[in-house]
């Protein structure tokens, strides 16, 4: 699969590395070149420095042939914009958007974006771990790290 990842912080870089090792074609776009250092040496994919909402940048990242895009920059508004550009203009079949703010997530999900809210995920998981104190929740945490 040809996958574009917008944002190369903790989630973006780990996601990129994992997908590349699985043999996917991965392009990481980030406005700050320094962030690419998180990918480690010899990253088996492409990096592109530039604003991920810029259509020309996305075009050089090969968005026209992309099968999927993940918007995982640290900025919710940016992620939403990237996703809308990817879906609306370039018709990328599968777009995933990360939104920290639960309120906004609900709004954008209702607008049809495929969203993920790490805040709510953490809330649910931590809550479960606190209340049940069972190993099942711990195991889940280890598997996800």
């Amino acid at each position: 699969m040809y996958i574009i990842i917008a944002g190369c912080r903790k989630v973006g870089s780990n996601l990129a590395r994992t997908l590349a090792e699985e043999g996917h074609d991965v392009v990481v776009v980030d406005s700050d070149e320094k962030d690419f250092e998180l990918l480690g040496s010899g990253f088996n994919g492409m990096t592109l420095a530039g604003m991920p909402i810029d259509e020309d940048v996305l075009r050089s990242a090969g968005i026209e042939k992309a099968d999927a895009l993940a918007a995982v920059t640290d900025d919710d508004n940016m992620n939403v914009m990237i996703s809308q550009v990817a879906r609306g203009i370039f018709h990328v079949p599968n777009v995933v958007t990360r939104i920290y703010d639960p309120e906004r997530e609900k709004v954008f999900r209702s607008m049809g974006l495929r969203t993920l809210c790490p805040t709510m995920l953490a809330v649910e998981r931590i809550g479960a771990m606190l209340t049940s104190g069972s190993d099942a929740a711990d195991g889940a945490r280890e598997a996800s790290s």
Binding site: H24, V26, S41, F43
Partner: peptide
Amino acid sequence: KGTNGAYKMYVGEGKDERLTPNVVN
């Protein structure tokens, strides 16, 4: 199988361009 170190070996053979982002592809 697996792409561990793939890019490094690829560069070692005197090619450094990617036709697709993944050097195996």
